[in-house]
């Protein structure tokens, strides 16, 4: 299973490199406060990477904050019953 995952990962990296090489010409981006000129492939891969990281962070925050909230509520009940 792990070997298959590594092969897939390598395939995707190779596809990314190929995609970057094929789209090496610059594209300019106007962000309002700054203007950027990035290779088209690089910009595309950066957007994918950023979206993936943001998704992960959102999921992690959602579960850990919920867990913390529940712990805080239980501690409160405990302190009122022991007081």
């Amino acid at each position: 299973m792990r070997l298959i995952a590594i092969i897939f990962l390598l395939l995707f990296i190779a596809a990314g490199v190929v995609f970057g090489a094929l789209n090496a010409d610059l594209a300019s981006f106007d962000l309002g406060f700054a203007q950027l000129s990035l290779p088209k492939g690089g910009a595309m891969l950066s957007a994918v990477l950023l979206g993936w990281i943001l998704g992960g962070v959102t999921a992690w925050l959602g579960t850990s904050l919920g867990h913390r909230r529940r712990r805080r509520r239980e501690r409160k009940v405990e302190s009122t019953t022991t007081a």
Binding site: A47, L49, G51, G55, V57, T58, A59
Partner: peptide, 21 residues
């Protein structure tokens, strides 16, 4: 269609993080 790529990547990241949790 390229505009769909970042949201799809977001969804993938979210799903993977949930799964590992």
């Amino acid at each position: 269609l390229l505009a769909l790529v970042p949201p799809v990547a977001f969804a993938c990241g979210w799903w993977l993080a949930r799964r590992s949790h």
